[in-house]
């Protein structure tokens, strides 16, 4: 009651709520930011249509950020491989998932927050693609998860599951390398990884798995992630018998020990 009175009083006296100025600033920021984003996307669309400008921009970015390891002309050095023929798909995958630029030389470049905007990545991709032909960034129609999930499961089981785990939970490889988890990875990056074979992953070119096969695999992973916990209870990360065995050892045996103690303990 008192609260309402005070609000009414404030309104009557024409004074603003203390948070009103914060809200005003927020609205202002959002409007200018939104307008800027809108303008800049239009700008990037223009610049990507102007491919030679993007290539020049990409070459600059490459020289500043990548040439240390991959060489000034992307021909490779002792520290990094040649990028001739890796295609824009490879650049989009490596830079878009933050694997490149590498944090340090090691067994495997780890996924981390991307260091560049999509516009910058596209520019570098255009530059690399201009050096030698290679796989391009995939068409949207393969990425929407509308393929045949059952066919995708069979292909995934034969070609992918031994490293990435049948639930896409990832797994260990040799000498510190690992197959990363596929849960939550964007469809675009899954497709690009298959077609380019990043790091120690083998290449699955369109002559091995057709674009439709790849779309089916993506559909399976998407279906699996959306329905994973729908059946069979808690999936424990989908890691298989180790996680399940550990769970039953700790909690199953723990419960049995607890019940045994309760049965034999004297009541008060």
């Amino acid at each position: 009651m008192q609260n309402r009175n005070s609000t009414a009083a404030r309104r009557a006296s024409g004074r603003r709520h203390p948070l009103a100025s914060v809200a005003l600033i927020l609205i202002g920021l959002l409007t200018t930011g939104g307008a800027y984003a809108l303008l800049s996307t239009t700008a990037s669309a223009e610049s990507s249509s102007d491919s030679s400008a993007a290539i020049t921009e990409g070459q600059k970015l490459f020289a500043a950020n990548c040439a240390t390891c991959h060489g000034v002309n992307a021909a490779g050095t002792a520290e990094g491989p040649s990028l001739y023929g890796v295609g824009s798909a490879s650049v989009d995958f490596q830079m878009g998932t933050g694997r490149m630029p590498l944090a340090f030389q090691g067994p495997q470049g780890a996924q981390k927050p991307p260091q560049f905007t999509q516009t910058q990545i596209d520019a570098v991709a255009a530059y690399i693609a201009s050096l030698a032909p290679g796989p391009a960034v995939p068409d949207e129609k393969w990425l929407d998860g509308s393929g045949d999930a059952a066919a995708g499961l069979e292909l995934f089981r034969i070609n992918c599951a031994m490293c990435h785990n049948i639930a896409g939970a990832g797994g260990a490889l040799t000498e510190g390398k690992y197959a990363p988890a596929l849960q939550g990875v964007e469809a675009k990056y899954i497709y690009e990884a298959m077609v380019t074979g990043p790091q120690n992953m083998p290449v699955f070119s369109d002559l091995n798995l057709t674009p439709q096969d790849k779309a089916n695999i993506i559909s399976y992973l998407k279906f699996q992630q959306e329905n994973a916990s729908g059946v069979g209870g808690v999936d424990l990360g989908g890691l298989g018998p180790v996680a399940e065995g550990l769970f039953i050892w700790i909690f199953g045996l723990g419960a049995i020990v607890g019940v045994t103690i309760w049965i034999t303990a004297r009541p008060n």
Partner: peptide, 17 residues
Amino acid sequence: DPDGTPIKASDVTIGSV
């Protein structure tokens, strides 16, 4: 595997499995 289509040597790019 599994569809049984034969493989051409030219299908197998370097790094393929």
